[in-house]
Design a protein around this nucleic acid. Sequence first.
RNA 1: CGGGGCGUAGCUCAGCCUGGUAGAGCGCACGGUUCGGGUCCGUGAGGCCGGAGGUUCGAAUCCUCUCGCCCCGACCA
Length: 570
Amino acid sequence: MRWSQYFLYTSREVPADAEVISHQLMSRAGMLRKHAAGIYSFLPFGLRSMSKMMGIVRRELDAVGCQELEMPVVQPAELWQESKRWRKYGKELLRVKDRHGRDFCLGPTHEEVVTDLVRRNVKSYRQLPLNLYQIQTKFRDEIRPRFGLMRGREFMMKDAYSFHADDTCMDDVYQAMHGAYSRIVEACGLDYIVVDADSGTIGGSSSHEFMVLADTGESAVIRCKASGYAANVEKAVTKLETPEAPASDVLEEVATPGLTTVEQVAKHLGVDPSQMVKTLIYEHDGGIVAVAIRGDREVNEVKLKNVLDAEWLRLADAEKVSRATNAPVGFAGPVGLSVDRLIADTTTQELKNFACGANKVDAHLTGVNWGRDAEVTEFADVLMVVEGDADVESGEPLETFRGIEVGHIFKLGTSYSEAMNCNFAAEEGPDKPMIMGCYGLGIGRTVAAAIEQNHDKDGIIWPLPLAPFQVLLSALNPAADDAVREVAERLYGDLETAGYEVLYDDREMSPGAKFKDADLIGLPLRVVVGSRSLSNGGVEFSLRRAPQEREIVAVGDIIERLGRALEELS
RNA sequence: CGGGGCGUAGCUCAGCCUGGUAGAGCGCACGGUUCGGGUCCGUGAGGCCGGAGGUUCGAAUCCUCUCGCCCCGACCA
């Protein structure tokens, strides 16, 4: 491709709305343009790396037996009503009506459609397993799109869905997909970890996220080096030491005028916050619920939502709190509450003689004990794990990292197949619902993550597999220097003929500007033709990742030299 | 949706406080100059100052309302 004719316009200015480095560089390097919040065009240069990414995905998925298909972006409401997600998915599902007033949505994911496809044609265990995937634009009306491609509303995703006759088969395919995902992420040259994850609105029993480590990542990841345990913070577990119990087991009310925070009350009572139980009042689609948790700890609302099997969850407003506790916000406690359920975190189960709010203004209780003083509906793990907590297995302190979630795989079980009657004739006995798995991977997000991990102050440093072109051929002052122009033109033809992906910078610009652009767009291999290089006996060759190490290579040897460099980079 | 911020040339921004002929740099076009790390000089095109109301002799500037965008939180590939 001749740059002088190419739709590739770089910029030295950082767009005002680009916060993260990948977004800044992709914008400056002319890969994409924004049209609205979370909605982008991919320009030719950017699309090339997306295509590379898609190629890697296809290669690895096809290798583990997946079959590609293409499902509709616009999906009928009926399917979503059948799975009950028309109601459950919430506002993220962009709903539209056609001219007849029929309801449709823009597909954020395709469990319903693929299940509908499979149930029509697959009737027997003999036809299973099956693993279908597509690479397609998804639309999710995110509350807050941000960080360029990291969280778009319209975005390119690879989504795969597997169907099985039994759990063993499900597990095998899950492992195969785990392997394929690992190879994909590795092929992109990314530093990543796989973590236990919450399965969110997609549902299901087990799931793992592929996290690319990056400070700009939106997800917090917990990891233990010793045991190899790794989990999304939403899912992470720990084991806490139970603090020593205060001596008195007498239930007493203590005046705490004006003291509403745990720290204030603990200080006043002369106990540690960990010896207190704080009580938070939540409301959700199933009613009002109180959550008791150790005073020094925070509630993990994702865990809580799962325990409650809630569609939505939020802290109750002041009015609901005072109705539940008969007191203003700040004095809630587990004793004598009027709520639908009282969930206590498991780390409070062993607490004895603890202190807590009295459900009365300016008062707290001491010497409180479960059973005698308060009935808990259920003890459950709703604890937010923090850095330094002990790993359950090794006891070593857990570390936290920031990560970009580029892929997420789920064991779905039979929730969709049951809701949508996707059954098969088993080898023996009655028909059964198929067991399903699903596997998502963000194409644009992975490309963005690759840039987050591979850049320097001058621009992108493309990992070879994702590079829009392999080689940048740059002619310095081609209009003024006939020899330069002739060599560069001939070389461009030769490289194309030899099968290299070449971007030929034949623009009439000053050499300095060309070098700046070359660094910015970050193609792995660079060949510079200039009067100086020619007088030194050839053209100049260098790698983007090591810009200082330039070699002069005879024109006749450059193809061989490029071939060797490609070998080394692969 | 809650909290914060911003909308002025294609891009990055000044001007607004204190109302009075709409600016700079980059980019673009043309001419010259330079030619291995964003050369330099000159000329030029390019604006409904996000939109709508209001105050005023007069509004980019003050007031009200709207729309859009960005950041922090709840959602997720």
